[in-house]
Structures are given as structure tokens and as C-alpha cells.
Amino acid sequence: MEESSRPAAPIETLQLFPRLDELLLALLRSLAPADWQRPTLARQWTVKDVVAHLLDGNLRTLSMLRDGHFGEAPAGQSYDDVVGFLNRLNGEWVRAARRLSPAVLIELLAQSGAEYSAFLRTLDPWAPAAFSVAWAGESESLNWFHVARDYTEKWHHQQQIREAMGQTAPLMSPELFHPFIATLLRGLPHALRTAAAPTGAVVQVRIGEPGGGTWQVEKAPTHWRLREAAEQPGALLAAEVALAPETAWKLFTKGLSPAEARDQARLRGDEALGTAVLGLVAVMA
């Protein structure tokens, strides 16, 4: 695990998976047939395609981590190799799942979601995870961070569906949104890794309420480190970025480009440092 991205304390998300599933299934059961073909922020994917992708996440995790069946592997181990591999797998699955009816997708989600949550509860949160959180710059991660990363995947894909339906409010509650955004912002030191600044420089990120908060990243001699803002509440800031929650979740999951988000953000101080914050991407594919 890189020192630059080592978290100070775990983010508790395990207990939130059943609630996410409950909200998702209730939403999907309310959709009219035409709603399943609505476009989403997930590039060329419709609502139905995003639902299929969520099902794939359940089934792939159970197959690999619970049952030890990994199937294919990427040809190389670089970040780009892994991203290309995941994009191919995701595309193949979504195309095949277009043969499935909404009713079948809902049924499979309900069954696999319960099994998925049960499996996550068997993991030792402090043991090494099978997969690192690469977008946070880690070569090895602990299970609690792997679980939190999975939470952000389930949260933002459900929110893409909800955005298409104009029903985003349920996931913006502090209970569900704060762990999501706190996990994404563990990637700040990695996003700033090439940003030039003197040792001791502090970059602050503020996400609006409800459910937001304040995060600070400090430049150490060899890396950036995430810290609690309370460590030095009166710190002189090299840069500050303020984002509304609705902008933040889209930006960090590739639903908005940094240029689009720049028009909705408030930046103070060093422009290059603020721009580096807007470049944080907390998804792999």
C-alpha cells in the first residue's frame, strides 16, 4: 500500500449494501417498459444496460472471490491493460444481457445481491484484498477499502439510473452519500501525485451539504497525504475546491468532464492544484 494514499481510518460501508439493494429493487419494479431504454450518464448504456452491469458485479464477485473461479485475466498488469480488459468484459456482458427481460434481471439481482452482501460479511476487513484500489494509487489494499470501493460502484451506477429517471434524492441522504464521497476522496493523494507544490502545502476540498464535508491533502517531502481537516483547522491553504454534491459524484465517476465541472466549481488559490483535484477519477472503466 502506498504511503501517499494510506487512509487514516476505515470507512464503514458493509451495513449499507442491503439498503442500496432495497432501494434499487423498489425503483426497478416501478419502471414502465419504456423507462428501461432511457439513456444514462454511462456513455452508450441505457437504464437496462446499467442494471445488467450491476448484476455482473454481483455474479463476478461471487464467482471470483467466493468460489475461486477467476476465468479470464488481463494480458498485462499495467493500469491501462486492466482498464482495457475491464471495458471489454463489461461490454461483452451488457451486450449478452440485452437478451434478458427486465423481470429476469430483477429476479437475478434480488438473489445475487443477498448472496453478495452475505459474502462480504465473511471478509476480514483488515486482511489484504484480492484486488487493490488502483484509482487510489494502491498496489495492495485492505478488504475494508475493497468493500468501500464496491459500495461506490453500486452507489454511482444506481444513481445513474436514478438520474435518468429524475429520482436521485434517496441516495443523496447523508447516511448513503457521505460514505460514498469519503471513499472517492481517498484518491486525492494519487490525483495530486504529479502536482508541484512546496512541502507543507495544503489543498482543501469541500463538498456541500447534506452529506458532504471537508477534506485536506498535505504535501509531504515525497508524496501527498490525506488528513483530517481538524488536524490543522487554521492551515493556510495553497488551493481550495468547493463542489456541490450533485457535481461531485458525477465528476469523480466520469459523468462530467473536468472542464464541465470547472464551470460549476469554486476554485481559490493555485489554479494548477485545483485543476488536479478536478482530475480525480475514482472508477476503473
Rank of each mutant, 00 (worst) to 15 (best):
G187P: 04
L120Q: 03
Q77H: 14
S4I: 02
G76V: 05
S30M: 08
P221T: 11
E228M: 13
W135H: 08
P210T: 10
G211C: 09
A34V: 13
T152F: 01
L120C: 09
L20E: 06
A32K: 15
A96P: 03
P74L: 05
G211D: 08
P189F: 04
S132M: 05
L20P: 01
E140Q: 15
L184G: 09
V283R: 13
A73Q: 15
M172H: 13
L62A: 06
G166C: 08
V217S: 00
W45T: 08
L188F: 00
W249G: 02
D56I: 05
R95W: 07
L243Q: 05
G234E: 15
L62N: 07
V51N: 05
S63P: 04
R29M: 08
M1F: 10
F17N: 06
I181M: 06
A129K: 04
R29G: 13
M64S: 12
S5T: 12
G279N: 10
A239R: 03
H190R: 00
E115W: 05
V147T: 14
A191E: 00
P128H: 10
A285C: 10
E92N: 12
A148P: 03
A282K: 00
W215E: 04
V104I: 13
Q160S: 12
A32R: 15
T183Q: 06
W45F: 07
S132D: 12
E22P: 07
A238K: 03
R193P: 01
R262C: 03
A259V: 12
P179R: 07
L273F: 03
G234H: 11
V83E: 14
H156E: 09
V47H: 07
G208F: 01
L27D: 15
V104M: 11
D56C: 10
A265Y: 01
M64D: 08
E163P: 00
R6G: 02
E209N: 13
L142Q: 14
V50Q: 01
A182P: 00
Q204D: 01
L236Y: 02
G71A: 09
T194D: 13
L41D: 12
A164R: 02
A136V: 02
P125N: 07
V241G: 03
L65E: 14
L188Y: 01
W93L: 03
E163R: 13
S30F: 05
Q159R: 11
E228T: 12
G274N: 05
I11F: 06
K250M: 13
V104A: 14
A201M: 06
K154Y: 15
G113P: 07
G279Q: 02
A134H: 13
L24W: 09
F177E: 06
Q15G: 10
S78T: 15
P74F: 09
A118K: 11
S117Y: 08
A195H: 03
Q37A: 14
L176C: 04
P210G: 09
H146Q: 14
A242G: 08
S30N: 11
G71F: 07
I181Q: 04
P210S: 09
A201C: 04
F70G: 00
E115C: 09
W144F: 15
Y151T: 01
G91H: 06
A75K: 14
G84F: 06
A229N: 10
T194R: 11
L100R: 12
Q37Y: 07
G234R: 10
R19K: 15
K250W: 03
R98G: 10
L120G: 04
W155M: 09
D49L: 08
M1E: 11
A110C: 04
T194L: 09
E260T: 06
P258K: 04
L105K: 06
A96I: 01
